[in-house]
Amino acid sequence: MVSGTAQLLVCRGLTRQFGGVVALSGLDLELRRGELLGLIGPNGSGKTTFFNVLTGLFPPTRGEIVFDGAPLAGARPQEIHRAGITRTFQRSRLCLDLSIFDNLAIGAHQRLDHRMVFNVLRRHDLAREADATAAAATELLEIFDPPLARRLFEPMTGVAMIDRRRVEICRALMSRPRLLLLDEPSAGMTGEETTRLMDDLLEVRRRFGDLTIVLIEHEMSVIQRVTERCVVLNYGKKLCEGTFAEVSADPEVRRAYLGLA
């Protein structure tokens, strides 16, 4: 048993059922502080459901979640965000009617002053807070793509798909989370774009030292390159965990993924 302080997240027996469908079944998972964990498995194996349960979109049917010593199972998404967990979505969920800045400001919501009096009457202070937020947004975007950072106030509609994914990741980073959940961030990207994205992600990790990341990916080369450890899911259950080399050699994993006998 590892001592409590190194464990950022502990999930025990996490189960989620939708009617007759068991999307997650008795999942035990632990995350060490600062690690980059890969979460892999065939389609429908429960990876996104795990994220959804973790971020409070669905309460677990059974099981517990302990984040940094505090129980989180069944908490509302807003409370979970406050605790320091943020995410991106498999199907990009950005507000296309808004500007890049507005979308990033949504990510920073909890750190901004929302009082009516402040926003309506103290306009100078509001302007200064907006400037500070814009500066933080620019700093984040520049890690991924400096030209994108210069388009901060443009509407999202004019932004290309790959940039949208970058904006989505930055939105999740605006609140300086402790745990970042990335759901197939490189979907739809070319190999080169993916490599670049992962480089940028590692740079983010270097800058924000205590950031822990869980990465859902289908690209095995990415998992192999950036993750320190991975967990394989199948039919909602944990099949195996270890380094990429270890899990890719596991016969059960090979059977689940490649259908080999």
Binding site: R76, Q78, T86, R93, L98, I106, H109, L126
Partner: peptide, 24 residues
């Protein structure tokens, strides 16, 4: 034209995402 407006937009456009970023 304030953080309130941004929050309202987020609620109007995508409640699920808004909730995940702490917006009530």
């Amino acid at each position: 034209r304030s953080w309130i407006g941004v929050a309202l937009d987020a609620v109007r456009l995508d409640e699920t995402a808004a909730a995940c970023f702490g917006i009530s």
